[in-house]
């Protein structure tokens, strides 16, 4: 383990403390959670302002206008057309004025128009064309079961993909009543979807557990470093003490409530 400064110990202790503060939400909304919540919201808002400046405004607007120099020589810029998005951005600020806020609708309209123009062909490509192409499979009939029924190369698996895709599409017909054969196919489609959702759920839950383990490891690593600094441990046990006090108070409240109910 590398030698850490006392500052590092204190910061990691603070991190471990905030982890517990967020976990305390499992108990109920409490001052510890509120503190952590407001801290993370405030810090993240400030952080993203800086990120936006360094990753957005500076490289994409100011540097392009000034060829890397930050001076107000934009009208002499080799690329003055970058002033247009700059002006549109400034127009958004008119929202601060009630009388002039209508001006901000123009950049919004422009943004939405451009966004829709990009999204329509992109969605058509990714969600229709690519999937349609993939659904047309050349089934390997001589490899009917493959190495098992879940072998993606087997004919059975490929037929399941095709039938599953098409029947799921039947479920999403909105202008036809689901009855008769149509209802049967649509119901099969929703079953296929639910099986898929179940698998996805299990997969993601496992991912979440690994995140939880990561947090525990963080606290575990913190303990490894903190043994060298008893002062940090004192802070830690103070935190534990507060939690213990909270538990005690809650328990007393619970007993009082039960006694009152009994009497």
């Amino acid at each position: 383990m590398d030698a850490f400064s006392i500052g590092t110990y204190l910061w990691t202790t603070f991190g471990a403390f905030l982890t517990l503060c967020i976990f305390s939400f499992l108990y109920r909304d409490n001052p510890f959670y509120k503190f952590a919540e407001h801290l993370v919201v405030g810090v993240s808002a400030g952080y993203f302002v800086i990120i936006l400046w360094h990753n957005g405004l500076q490289p994409n607007l100011f540097n392009r206008l000034n060829d890397g120099d930050f001076y107000l020589l934009w009208l002499n810029s080799a690329r003055p057309w970058y002033l247009i998005p700059g002006i549109l951005g400034v127009m958004m600020w008119t929202r601060f004025s009630r009388k002039k806020s209508w001006i901000s609708r123009y950049p919004i309209a422009m943004y939405m128009g451009i966004a829709a123009g990009i999204a329509v062909p992109l969605e058509m490509k990714n969600r229709v064309n690519v999937q349609l192409y993939s659904a047309m499979k050349n089934v390997e009939w001589n490899n009917f079961f493959g190495t098992g029924i879940l072998d993606s190369g087997s004919a059975v698996a490929q037929l399941i993909i095709l039938i599953g895709t098409l029947s799921a599409l039947f479920y999403f017909f909105f202008s036809k009543e689901h009855s008769g054969l149509f209802k049967g196919v649509a119901r099969f489609g929703i079953w296929i979807l639910m099986i898929g959702f179940g698998a996805s759920f299990g997969y993601t839950v496992m991912g979440r557990i690994s995140l939880f383990v990561q947090r525990i490891q963080y606290v575990g690593n913190w303990t490894e470093t903190s043994w060298a600094h008893p002062s940090v441990l004192v802070i830690w046990f103070l935190i534990v003490g507060v939690f213990a006090l909270l538990l005690l108070l809650e328990f007393i409240k619970f007993l009082t409530k039960r006694r009152t109910a009994a009497s």
């Binding site: 517990l20 525990i216 606290v219 575990g220 913190w222 903190s226 441990l233 935190i239 534990v240």
Partner: peptide, 9 residues
Amino acid sequence: LLCFAVAAP
């Protein structure tokens, strides 16, 4: 939570 907090160190 308390058990977790005590056990971690």
